[in-house]
Amino acid sequence: MINSVFRFGLIAAVLILFQLLVLNNIQFSGFVNPYVYIMIILLLPSLTPAWALLLISFFTGLVIDLFSGSPGMHASATVMAGFARPYVLRLIAPRDGYESGSDLSMPAYGLRWFFTYATIIIVIHHTTLFFVEVFRFTDFFRTILRILLSSVFTLGFVLLIEYYRKGR
């Protein structure tokens, strides 16, 4: 238990540092902003109670916000993603359910399952984030394009990291 909390904390710290120090500094035409820290919410164990999930999501978003100077923006998006996670998990549950205590990772449930799961959560997160960022519905399709492109890149990064974890 303590071991898994420690391990998870390490993953979270690495992801947040990666996001803040590397990805936030990439300026790629303004349309592509990958937000890989969302993996923290993806990887939380399936046993996590919903309220803890929401709190962890909120503080993750808040930390990102504090370091990128946009209080509330990422927090609202991560809380939305954290809120959606239990419903998404129920929706795409494998035939024999989730093994209690297992990680929600690619090695445990397979590429296809993980791909669906990550895609849904990432799109929910990015949709909230980018709409909260522009805060209006003019230029609707431009925002949609940003959401789609960034989601694709985030998903790519997430899958890469999962493959790396699997291989190790």
Partner: peptide
């Protein structure tokens, strides 16, 4: 309770955002 926690946290982040 989950919905309530969600609404509180989301509301708080929106207050932060607009403030």
């Amino acid at each position: 309770n989950n919905l309530i926690v969600f609404l509180i946290l989301e509301g708080f982040s929106l207050i932060l955002l607009t403030g």
